[in-house]
Design a protein around this nucleic acid. Structure first.
Length: 474
RNA sequence: GGCUCUAUCGUCUAACGGUUAGGACGAAUCCUUCUCAAGGAUUAAAUCGCGGUUCGAUUCCGCGUAGAGUCACCA
């Protein structure tokens, strides 16, 4: 490790909501900064006015905060390298553009968009990659700001570089072209702006997804032209959609990360899950349910994957439940109650519900599905269903009477799950099979083929209601 | 089409060049249990193919195959 302090950044463009791919990129950059006691910067790359979506920045900030990512410098909190929105840093880009112009390494694009389109078509027909530099003008005019400013690639050659995850990477000269530095609207392109910003903000490690590998030679040639030492490049594997092999993007239905919040996922579960797509602690540690602090502690570049990973919702659901189990009873109750109608907010219901959900919004579905109606309304009883296997009707009636008798002997204070179970099991064990008693009792109380056990139901609905339902069944 | 990247159970993945290729999700079976859920146990399931280097290759190299990325006045 060098003595330079690690500085990483997440630089989204405000073009809509954040999906899991974006959050994962942010997460890795953040984890690396936190692990190395470095600085994490949030920078907004708002240089495409046409694609900008109002409210995106707030949405991005809310998404990152929800999952537990914080930043040391950013548009909302400022910092030593402010401003943190590219649209407010135009002077910087102009300054470096001027340096390139003076070196003869930048020139105005003389073509119209129609002309460019024709060049591109021609290349496509000829099954060649389109290279603007094939059409580079012989002599450069003076740039007046009304035309796009292009970078004159100083040397067309192959590039080799080292990626912290992928190792040695290379590209042929075809990867190099005279790309646009500043658009005709005065805003810089990503290709130019991110290099200047990273330089001025002291970024030491650039983490980004693998779609940037093919443009890396362009960046490298610009670093060369400006005599800048490039930061460490870290390529992250893509997150693939669950169904296919394609990179997960908004068009394939990638969800807004805040939708997961709405669905009642825990942010620490989502963080845990995202950290494990494309990374793992490796070596002997097989644990997968980790806290934020543990993940920071374990995080390293060595175990970042090269291949893409699929977004597996099943595993997210499991992980969410695992994190739910770590919560205190109080927290569990609070979250479940939020989705429960006030008339059935009985603390005794919590364990019954908790075993049957893996995210908070499942409670809502249970309510909608009528799962709880049995707890506050006596069910309709179907005589046939009261019968346990081949037991006679008389026997069932007799057993229900026995149950009533023994439950009556319990005082109100004793009418708790454990006591009820003790009493009923004692009778049931004296019978040919426990089901002869437990089935009719459970059915009489619930009116359902499938339900929680009779002991917990009885304790929740109380002594009076229990006896009344059993009586009714008889 | 050019350039480039990637490749271990269905999925996420582990494994100084030496392991009966390990774990987790999911699945199946069993136990527990009147039912459901939860819990416990067990099982099935993988090194893309062909060469090469090596005493020895999941691991290194080459070729092939498959998938992906990119070739914008988008990032």
């Amino acid at each position: 490790m060098s003595d330079t302090k690690v500085v990483t950044r997440f630089a989204p463009s405000p073009t809509g909501f954040m999906h899991v791919g974006g959050v994962r990129t942010a997460l890795f950059a953040w984890l690396f900064a936190r692990k190395n006691k470095g600085t994490f910067i949030l920078r907004i790359e708002d240089t495409d006015k046409a694609r900008e979506v109002a409210g995106s920045i707030d949405h991005i900030i809310e998404s990152l905060k929800w999952i537990g990512i914080d930043w040391d410098e950013g548009p909302d909190i400022g910092g030593p390298h402010a401003p943190y929105k590219q649209s407010e840093r135009l002077d910087s880009y102009k300054k470096y553009a001027q340096i390139l112009i003076e070196k003869g390494l930048a020139y105005p694009d003389p073509y119209t968009s129609e002309e460019l389109e024709a060049f591109r078509k021609k290349a496509e027909v000829e099954k060649r990659p389109f290279l603007y530099r094939d059409y580079r003008p012989e002599s450069f005019r003076k740039w007046d700001g009304t035309k796009a400013l292009r970078f004159k690639t100083p040397e067309i050659k192959s590039y080799k570089w080292t990626d912290a995850v992928r190792g040695e990477l290379s590209a042929g000269p075809e990867a190099l072209d005279d790309f646009i530095l500043i658009k005709s609207d005065g805003y810089p392109t990503y290709n130019f702006a991110h290099i200047i910003d990273d330089l001025e903000m002291g970024v030491t490690h650039i983490m980004r997804a693998d779609e940037f590998i093919s443009s890396t030679p362009k960046f490298l040639s610009l670093y060369d032209a400006l005599s800048i030492m490039p930061p460490v490049l870290v390529t992250l594997p893509p997150i693939l959609g669950e169904a296919g092999t394609k990179k997960l993007g908004k068009r394939d239905g990638a969800k807004d990360i805040l939708d997961y919040k709405k669905e009642g996922y825990l942010p620490e579960a989502m963080l845990n899950f995202l950290a494990f797509i494309g990374w793992n602690p490796g070596e002997g540690d097989n644990r997968e349910v980790l806290t934020k602090e543990e993940i920071i502690n374990f995080f390293d570049l060595k175990h970042v994957q090269r291949a893409g990973g699929k977004f597996n919702e099943e595993k997210l659901i499991w992980l969410n439940k695992e994190h739910m189990k770590k919560l205190s009873q109080k927290e569990i109750e609070k979250n479940i109650f939020e989705y429960l109608p006030s008339e059935i907010r009985n603390p005794k219901l919590i364990p019954v519900i908790f075993d049957r959900i893996s995210k908070w919004s499942d409670v809502k579905e249970m309510v909608a599905g009528g799962e709880f109606i049995l707890f506050f309304k006596a069910p309709q009883i179907n005589k046939i269903k009261l019968i346990y296997k081949k037991t006679s009707q008389e026997k069932i009636t007799e057993n229900l009477k026995l149950a009533i008798k023994s439950l009556e002997s319990l005082s109100d204070d004793e009418f708790i799950t454990e006591k009820i179970k003790e009493v009923l099991i004692k009778i049931a064990d004296g019978l040919e099979s426990r089901g002869e008693l437990l089935h009719p009792v459970r059915y009489a109380l619930s009116g359902k083929d499938q339900s929680p056990d009779p002991f917990i139901i009885a304790s929740i609905i109380g002594k009076n209601e229990t006896l009344s339902r059993l009586q009714k069944a008889i």
